[in-house]
Design a protein around this nucleic acid. Structure first.
Lengths: 229, 229
DNA sequence: GTCTATATGGGGATAGAC
DNA sequence: GTCTATCCCCATATAGAC
């Protein structure tokens, strides 16, 4: 199978988008995405995937070649559009405002994540959770495939934040960006840090708008806080 | 083996603490802790553990009963003392200050984590990373064992933060605590969110003091930021 | 307590009929 | 493209000698 084309963009998949049963490869991708989020990569077997997708066991290897390649396909199907959206928002913001606001910058990242989370056709909140999980699990696949491919993303945001917060040194800015992205990913991931450490029903409700209402001010406050000393 | 006593506190283990080769159960715990952090629970096999610990394959089941029970033992060996330290700091702070400061509260959590991170005899930064990872992976073992046992911890911090930030509503406070603990765990976990999103050599240096220098102000700023609207 | 040997099951991957 | 059947490996766990 052509590695640069994933089923979601093939003609057959498009034809079936409104049908009740998407084609085999898409069904595999959809189920895998959910199971990888729920159980992690290692704990998810091809047998679990193919049973729930109601396809034959051999279909995974036929369509994707291996379990590793399947993971990559699941990942790339969502990540490329997400990053493209962020950069598009960033372009728009830079064209609109001479002096970038931190809140504006944060929003260029959060809004596409939010839009994705609210769109069931693109997996809803599942992918953002998968992304967060994968970052923490430090997959070799992620290190090898993603980090090279999306250095553009990193560089764009680093420069933008430096522009918005010129008073911060390189080291301080790097740390703050690290903290900011950490908390944003965890928020969208809907992890259970909260259930254990706040034991709150409120927080475990995964309403994306609630996340943004409280998340953006928290992150912005941390980013813009005055330098000590 | 008595489930309430782990090797690190047995007489034999204490005798061997300064010797070059700790007893079998302790060796297994040490190696497991490292491997669970590196590869995750599912991807770590008993064969990897017993080979690196230079003990027999059957030793794990003899000493701990099962892989699940081993995980729990690895976890509880560190978590119980860590939580006890946090609560002790909290007691001390509450005795010392009438009006709790947010920075003081945050520090009661960070200081024990930092102390643990800097103490190789207690696994150094490994355990905090394991804790973070396990929270994200949402292990059943963690949900079942820990969350019941340590509701005290949750309640104490919730009340303390409510006391320090009385102007915040219940919902707003729950979210802020969630964000705060998320970013703190990720910081100590030394995840690679940073390597991908900031591509910085600075941040990947795992100097615990650097973490605190930048982490505390970030978290405090987010917690105390004025309520909108 | 420690070892060897093995039981038992599940994993990913593939060959070859249809 | 899809199916069945199977290969081969590795997993956890245990039985029983020492």
């Amino acid at each position: 199978m052509d590695k640069t084309k994933y089923p979601a963009s093939t003609k057959k998949a498009q034809e079936n988008m409104e049908a009740s049963r998407p084609d085999t490869a898409t069904r595999i991708l959809d189920v895998s995405e959910r199971l990888f989020v729920e159980h992690g990569f290692e704990a998810t077997s091809l047998r679990m995937i193919t049973q729930q997708a109601e396809v034959n066991l051999a279909a995974v290897n036929y369509h994707f070649g291996s379990k590793d390649a399947l993971f990559e396909a699941v990942f790339m199907r969502r990540l490329a559009p997400l990053i493209a959206s962020c950069l598009a928002e960033l372009d728009e913001l830079e064209a609109r405002e001479e002096k970038l606001s931190v809140e504006g910058l944060v929003t260029t990242f959060i809004r596409p994540c939010l839009a994705l989370s609210k769109d069931p056709a693109r997996g809803g909140a599942l992918f953002v959770r998968l992304l967060s999980r994968t970052l923490v699990e430090n997959h070799r696949l992620l290190r090898e495939t993603i980090s090279q491919q999306y250095s553009v993303f990193v560089q764009r945001y680093s420069r933008a934040f430096h522009h918005a917060l010129p008073e911060l040194g390189v080291e301080e800015l790097a740390w703050r960006m690290h903290f900011a992205f950490s908390v944003m990913f965890n928020a969208f991931a809907g992890n259970d840090v909260l259930k254990i450490f706040t034991r709150s029903q409120i927080v475990s409700a995964r309403d994306p708008d609630m996340i943004v209402k409280y998340l953006v001010p928290f992150v912005v406050a941390g980013l813009v806080s005055p330098v000590e000393g």
